[in-house]
Design a protein around this nucleic acid. Structure first.
Lengths: 337, 337
DNA sequence: AAAAACAACGCAAACGTTTGATTAATTTAG
DNA sequence: CTAAATTAATCAAACGTTTGCGTTGTTTTT
């Protein structure tokens, strides 16, 4: 019962024509007559001919595959993004392979290498948290493998990327809190090395300056994003000489740690909390953040993959121009508390 | 600066030996002398030779790729499972491609076809909610593409699968609630067509019988798993002549709808809720389910992919034996409320 | 009526690697 | 000292498809 898939050669033999004619017939090449073309197509259909992808890929030297490297697939943001990438790629008949760096620089380097060996036609990357060197991506240049970064992007403008302006988003969040009357606003920021932390800080300062207020650096604390780190940061605010009345959390996970901790201390009502990510689940919890920055993972994924497909079909000679796409992040108000 | 990857032919030319010798040298074939072998390996390394995968795949007729079809990647359960699959496959040097059925039967059929055309070496499937016909998987048999189902499995035993026994898990949940003194326990079940619904129902009945209680069928209501459907089911219980004091929800999402609704009606404290999935987030919400059935997506993914790899390397002649692996589900107690 | 254009198809090479069969050179056994 | 065995390498085919270039006839143009 071992069916072997039909090949072009077999069709050719049956029709007593050459394989090349069959190939051309199937691709509507003008040099094949209408009659033969139809005969070919009919027989192909009735034999359930399916082109051998491996053969085509090999002969064309393209794989019609795009690679995706991201930190952690089980995070909602990334699974949503990859869902978009997959949907979009499928439309254009591309295949997606992906891999997780688990926020580990060495792993990321290995994966880039693996993707290169797999001969992906292009790469989509959301960089690991402990990546500060980007040579492994530079290498791909000489192999003509375009790379588009999304969400977690390198600080350089000389790459293709899609991301939200977290600076703007943070300023929005700050303005919202200031308008609500808060005058001391704490921020639990990520590790200082992260570009995303820098952006948040800049947005914070920008909003403070814009409102002609005095910036107090001690109101921004760095945090390793673990539960333990969050609690330490929270306690620092509780003991702060200008105890904040609102806190901007690095993301919803941090916000959850924070809320849990504040509930235990029974001080949850002393704070308005604003966060990032806008996890769908967040609206179901009590004392949830009153607002969350929506970073639109699906849209980011879509745009990133489309830029990549564009780059793959119209190669960018000598990297003269870079696509820097900013997806406007929105502050989603969730004022139930 | 266009680097073309090094090929075996080039190495052969430089070393003035034949390509076949290079190939054999790289693979430690005994018929190549130690001296030549080392020369080959050295040159290969210094030229940064990377085998052209496409060529190898084509020539071997294998793709070293496994396909994964699942309903919705952004659901925590599935993103965790696929995370495991990816990790495990990477170890064995397999590549994973995946696609989402979005719980649509036609889409699933198409994807199976696409995977077949992509010539995946094996397939991992968690079936769509509206799939009741399995012919599209049967077809793969004749192409010698093994299929392993996980979590959402067909009702037949004549397939390879990895799943939890939801019957046992449900019985555990019921026993737990009965031991807590509940005598009227409602169940918001899924659509009657789902095998998973059947299992839950059986587990419910099993526990009731085991405890020599009388089974009241009206305490199990089917639900389409939407928020609207959940609210209807909940209201049915509120008006039930034997108003339940505990409710088993089909999964954590349903539980969230339910909790939200009960909170609005201010009756949340009248119920103990038990659910399935054990989303990490669930422990952060107030009035959360007092217990949740953990189905171990990571473990399921791991086992499924290992069974698949096993089947791919040791083909199962004529499908005489089927791997039916049951992962024990645990009832995680979360008694805070 | 010859030249040019065109339509419809075949030939053969190429993509990079693997592998069964073969050969040549060397060693061992009888 | 020849025959057999071993070692080390080569040859050539094969995987399925695409594509540049030829080769036929046939039709159109001058």
């Amino acid at each position: 019962m071992q069916s072997k898939p039909t090949t072009i050669k077999e069709i050719a033999k049956i029709l007593k024509i050459s394989p090349s004619s069959v190939s051309r017939g199937l691709h509507d090449h003008p040099s094949i007559g209408a009659v033969t073309r139809e005969k070919i197509k009919q027989l192909a259909k009735s034999l359930n001919y399916q082109p051998n992808n491996a053969a085509i890929l090999f002969q064309k030297g393209k794989t019609y595959t795009i690679g995706v490297i991201l930190p952690e697939l089980s995070e909602h943001f990334f699974s949503t993004a990859i869902s978009a990438i997959e949907d979009e790629a499928l439309k254009k008949n591309y295949t997606v392979i992906f891999a997780q760096s688990h926020d580990n620089y060495e792993q990321e380097v290995k994966l880039v290498e693996k993707m290169k060996n797999q001969r992906v036609d292009g790469l989509l990357v959301s960089i690991s948290n402990d990546t500060s060197n980007f040579d492994h991506f530079e290498k791909l240049n000489s192999f003509n493998i375009p790379v588009v970064f999304f969400d977690r992007i390198p600080p350089s403008k000389n790459v293709h990327y899609v991301a939200c302006s977290l600076e703007t988003a943070t300023a929005k969040a700050l303005n919202y809190l200031l308008k609500k009357g808060h005058r001391s606003i704490g921020m639990i920021n990520g590790p200082a090395t992260l570009y995303a932390s820098e952006e948040r800080k800049d947005g914070y300062i920008q909003a403070i300056n814009f409102n002609r207020l005095k910036f107090d650096p001690s109101l921004i604390v760095n945090c390793d994003l673990t539960e333990k780190g969050t609690i330490e940061a929270a306690d620092a605010f509780l003991n702060h000489k200008r105890k904040p009345t609102a806190i901007v959390a690095f993301n919803d996970y941090v916000a959850l740690f924070l809320i849990k901790h504040f509930k235990q201390l029974n001080v949850i009502n002393d704070f308005d909390i604003v966060s990032y990510a806008n996890l769908p689940i967040i609206s179901y919890i009590d004392n949830s953040p009153i607002a969350s920055v929506e970073q639109y993972p699906y849209v980011q994924g879509q745009k990133a993959v489309n830029i990549l497909l564009d780059l793959m079909t119209n190669p960018n000679p000598e990297n003269q121009a870079f696509f820097n796409t900013v997806v406007e992040a929105d502050l989603i108000i969730n004022e139930v508390k």
